[in-house]
Design a protein around this nucleic acid. Structure first.
Lengths: 338, 338
DNA sequence: CTGAAAGCGCTAACAG
DNA sequence: CTGTTAGCGCTTTCAG
């Protein structure tokens, strides 16, 4: 015989029942330590592995979770993925990758994977729920979903996040503290919650310091390299360009610095730049980027830990888990030279 | 009733047999277009989704593939993951993430997921097979596994890769062409195949140009930022430091450039640096990094395409698929100044 | 402590 | 074209 062995084969080989084998393999106390050992041995000898689908069907759990992001290609998610995977693995779960690219179709597909038992739970980092058109695609009430990074207001799902407003405010306060008064903000795609929050932090800091936000000082970006460069260019086409820029993420900050260099402006000599995220390589960048550090490892771990709790029946916390984000002052921010 | 509807429910609601429903939902020609439509409708109305485990058990396919890497945290894999996911999705497959961190235990676990039907196939990018100790963990002969990026000689699995030797040689020839004669190489962890190949390319180019490789000119790195910096430092502790360095990957190249800057050496004024990989951000780096571009999107797509073919029963190609890697000359390489 | 039997939800022969 | 039947491999009552 050359097919994959099943429980029955082990049972037959030992003259016991399949039930006993099943119990022995899941370390049930109901089986003599001795028979358990014997069963283990032959299972090993036969190179046995329990069939995953059969087990899933029977137990109604897939032992997989789904991690859904807007763009798997974004390096921002790396550490989160890593810690989610590690935490999941430690609990016996596998991680399925979901990539929506803002496509509503796909968003629905990933939610469907939850309903059809492909995955037992989901960590959602896209900042949105699929359109709940009538009864279709309706999720069962207590779905094991954790929202991380982004937030979905009124969704009722537990959240793991940072305080974007406070972090942005701290970044701008740092620039103000250095003596800057003409501070611009390159934002994310504005209707999106996260972009709005970071902009809000910028405005709060400016307001609190009695500084004006001149027209054109809040160009909108797209969180991408090129968008940062373009927004930066727009700023320096203004009659009164800023002496400092708070950029809504590191990638755009890189683009902006690139652009400044191209225009012959020194960073931080002529213009200070502060980013947001503290990407891998932001420190190795030249000059090392001053930015807001997001505790990605923690975010991933906490989100997965929360999900695991929900999967084991614990109630989800009503309050969002808010992790500290801290400003990392490096070399792209300095005093204004005028 | 409030439980998830099953095929039986739809069948009952319409007074047809479960078999017909199953057929209709998989668009079988064996069902009248009309009944098919009716079935579709009620399925939708009932918000029906087929149970994934039941289907998997019956069809003996999980519709998932496993992508296994050494370190999910490495940005190098991003584009590959992205294109693997896209290609898989288009064919109806989901992607499970595997992260070994060079842990033999984990390597085995991921292989086991193949055997237990958790995944139907695997894209392996770790450069090694788990130890085949006797009969245990032995894979069935024609396992649907594609090796990408790295190579596992004699494994018999199809490969998707670049020509590391030729690419490295081209990088070094570029430096030679610029007039450099004292060219060093910061290698990867040397017993590993990929590191050896890139070193081999370096040596071939040096040899062909009649250039010596002085003692200490091939410090070993670890593919990490810090390792690149350390190796670079070692080079400049030599009596005759190089005027150019070919570094086995971009991350170490960043580290090396960082180190050079710290030692007050200009890149490329004093020292030229060429990397390998063309990471996301290598172009945005300052100065933009001259490096070997790896066609990651293609690698991912081709690997997944190959895997899909194997999964549908086509024979695997005996010859490795070799994709072109091209040198991207940017701003970290220039003529020597002496 | 162990065995017999049922059934998770689906698909695929096989008959009609 | 449709229905009946069996069974994928496992776990879990329920009896003993």
């Amino acid at each position: 015989m050359n097919r994959r062995p099943k429980i029955k084969d082990i049972a037959a080989a030992l003259g016991v029942s399949p039930a006993t084998v099943s119990r022995a393999l899941s370390d049930s106390e109901l089986v003599t330590a001795e028979t358990r050992a014997r069963i283990r041995e032959t299972a090993q000898a036969l190179n046995y592995r329990p069939n995953a689908s059969a087990r899933s069907l029977r137990t109604a759990r897939s032992m997989s979770v789904l991690m859904v992001v807007r763009d798997v290609g974004n390096p921002f998610y790396l550490d989160i993925l890593k810690s989610v995977e590690a935490t999941a693995r430690a609990a016996g779960y596998s991680v399925l990758m979901g990539n929506t690219e803002n496509d509503p179709e796909r968003e629905i597909e990933y939610f469907d994977m939850l309903r059809d038992g492909h995955a037992d739970g989901m960590i959602l980092m896209t900042g949105k729920l699929p359109a709940q058109d009538g009864s279709r695609h309706k999720l069962p009430p207590n779905s094991p979903i954790v929202v991380a990074l982004e937030m979905i207001e009124g969704s009722g799902f537990p959240h793991v996040q940072i305080d974007n407003v406070a972090a942005a405010r701290a970044a701008v306060e740092h620039l103000i503290g250095l003596g800057h008064r003409r501070i611009a903000h390159i934002s994310g795609p504005i209707p999106e919650v996260m972009s709005v929050l970071r902009q809000e932090g910028y405005r709060q800091a400016m307001n609190a310091a009695g500084l004006a936000v001149p027209a054109g000082y809040e160009p909108r970006g797209d969180y991408l390299l090129h968008g940062g460069a373009a927004a930066c260019k727009a700023l320096f086409d203004l009659r009164e360009p800023p002496t400092a820029i708070f950029v809504a993420n590191d990638e755009m900050a890189f683009g902006a610095i690139h652009q400044l260099r191209g225009m012959g402006r020194d960073v931080p000599g002529d213009v200070s730049v502060v980013g947001f995220d503290d990407l891998y390589l932001s420190e190795a960048f030249y000059p090392p980027l001053t930015t807001v550090h997001q505790p990605r490892i923690d975010i991933g771990r906490q989100a997965m830990t929360l999900l695991l709790k929900m999967l084991s029946g614990e109630p989800a916390p009503a309050e969002p888990v808010v992790l500290p984000a801290t400003l990392r002052i490096r070399a792209t921010s300095g005093r204004p030279n005028s």
